[in-house]
Amino acid sequence: MKINNIKKIFMHQIKVNKLRLLLSLPGFMIVILIFILPSIIDYQNIQLNNYSELLSLYRQQNPSLDNNNLTIIMLTDIKLLNYLLTLTFIIPLFLTIDLIVKEKEERTIENLFSLPISDFEILLGKVLVSLLTTIILIWFFYFSTLIVSYYYNYMFLISHIISVKWLFSIFILIPVISYFINVVAITISCLVNKYQTSQFVAVLVLSPFMIFFVLLSNGTLIFYNSYLILLFVFTLITSIAFSKISIKLFNREKILIKF
């Protein structure tokens, strides 16, 4: 495996998919302000099912906080953490499909396969683009939340955001989910030739997860910490299985015969 080849594929994808624009900070500051500020400050406008039950659950965990601060912490978990987890499902799925299916649809893949580079190097270069873009975005959101919280002097919120639950979610769970979605996306991309079909399949795959996150974010399902552990175990185990499938499917002969 040649690192230099993987780097070339990686840099090429950043250029072709114009990901530099996606990663430009000013645009993201706006997105962050739109999504983070209402969750933290304007919580009075947010409708939540099972509000009292959730509040008592959070009071048990943080007995020293008043109702106002407790609600902010609760909403940060329910809205923001959910939002970040949802993004972790959506971004790599569509990005990886875009990186592979577009090559097939625009018929650039045969030229790519004729280069002195292995299938695995091509795959890794593409996966790294999707994986790193997602992780950088999510981490950027996370650190921006810390900065915004500090700006408003919500020290109790900062101490909550740097708790084990958040650190585990941001630095362990999110990379694992991102990887899991990547291998699922590769599997879909190898089986489907048309971009629109692949997006339809992706939406079908995402649906159960999205329903789960919607129910969590409106309070219908109570956000227990054990859900994060369950999600971690599920994605880790299925990632291993899907890794094997995706490496087997991303084979130049199989792909060229199909299209």
Binding site: V16, K18, E106, R107, T108, E110, N111
Partner: peptide, 12 residues
């Protein structure tokens, strides 16, 4: 290798 029909990266 020159394939019979192959595309290029149109935006480049």
């Amino acid at each position: 290798y020159m394939p019979e029909e192959s595309g290029f990266y149109n935006k480049l």
